[in-house]
Simulated scan of single mutants.
Amino acid sequence: MGGMPPDATATKQRLLQAAVDEFARFGLAGARVDRIAEAAAANKRSIYVHFGTKEELFDRVVADGLLQLAEAVRFDATDLPRYAGELWELLEHRPHVRRLTLWSSLERPQPVDAEVEVYRTKVGAVEEAQAAGAVRADIPAPQLLAMVLALVISWDTASWSLKALHTGPGAAEQARAGIEAAVAGLVRVPPAAS
């Protein structure tokens, strides 16, 4: 009865990847733990051992995706148009993260600690930029950041009928440029009233 025990780290990684795929496709309610275990070549019990409930696994997958975005795209509150464009570009290559966050907002309407901390840092940076006069200050920082992020995903969440009117060569470049222009207009400090 010798031999090495199975590698728990490899199993956890396979389970996480299978969970990303399952939750991105079906959301929390539609996802099946059996399918996650089967896709990861693991048993269902291993999900509960490593991650707890299906809801806890979902929260972990969503938080991991958002933390990866936070690490991959440099946040500069004084250059929010560039941030929005780079974030949009990254989400084009990681559509599962966009889908997971949309599912999360629909099915888990509660704060997740890891996400709160990522946003707290960004909101603090926006408040500093507002205090320095680099970004409009008449909109509270959390709301302004929410608007920037909404513009980043605005084209993705638009009606398919509306999207059908804007296709063809250069559509992706135009989408990024449009988002950057919209964010620039949004965050611009309004002229002082006379």
Rank of each mutant, 00 (worst) to 15 (best):
G133L: 06
A29Y: 07
R60E: 00
P81N: 03
N43A: 06
T101E: 01
G30N: 07
T11M: 09
E127W: 01
Y83F: 15
E89I: 10
L102V: 11
I36H: 02
K122D: 09
I47H: 06
R14A: 15
E56W: 06
A72F: 05
F58R: 02
A137C: 06
V135I: 14
A70D: 14
R94S: 12
Y119P: 00
L102Y: 08
A134L: 09
R25V: 01
A129T: 14
E117K: 12
W88K: 12
A84L: 06
E38R: 15
E71G: 09
V49D: 14
E56S: 11
R25E: 07
A132T: 02
Y119N: 08
V97Q: 02
R136V: 08
I36C: 03
G65W: 02
E107M: 07
A41M: 07
R98L: 15
R108D: 03
Q13Y: 03
A19S: 08
V33C: 08
V116T: 14
N43T: 10
D79C: 12
A134K: 13
T11S: 11
A19P: 04
P109H: 09
F51Q: 04
A129H: 13
V33R: 11
N43D: 15
T53C: 05
A29I: 09
R82A: 11
G30C: 07
L28Q: 05
D79P: 12
F75H: 10
K122H: 13
S105T: 14
D34G: 12
P81F: 04
K122P: 05
V126M: 05
E55K: 15
F51C: 04
Y48V: 10
H93W: 04
T11L: 10
I36V: 09
V73P: 02
A40V: 11
D21N: 07
E117Q: 14
V62R: 00
R120P: 15
Q17V: 03
S46W: 01
R35S: 03
P95D: 13
A18I: 07
A31L: 01
G27S: 05
F75M: 10
G124C: 09
W88L: 13
E92T: 15
H96V: 03
V20T: 05
E128S: 06
L66G: 03
G52R: 04
T78V: 09
H93P: 00
V116Y: 06
A19L: 04
R45C: 02
E56P: 05
V126G: 03
L80N: 04
D59Q: 10
E89W: 13
S46C: 02
R45I: 09
E89M: 12
P109C: 10
S105D: 15
A40M: 11
V118S: 02
V61Y: 07
G27V: 08
A41W: 07
T78E: 13
R60I: 00
A40E: 10
S104I: 00
L106A: 15
R120D: 15
A134Q: 11
D113G: 03
L28V: 05
A77L: 07
A29G: 06
A18T: 06
L28E: 05
S105Y: 13
P95F: 12
E22G: 08
V73E: 04
T121E: 12
Y48T: 12
A39R: 14
V116I: 10
G27F: 07
A77Y: 07
T11K: 07
A31Y: 02
A40T: 11
Q130P: 01
G27I: 06
A37V: 11
A72L: 08
G124D: 14
R82I: 03
R14F: 06
E107D: 11
A134H: 12
E128Q: 11
A132F: 04
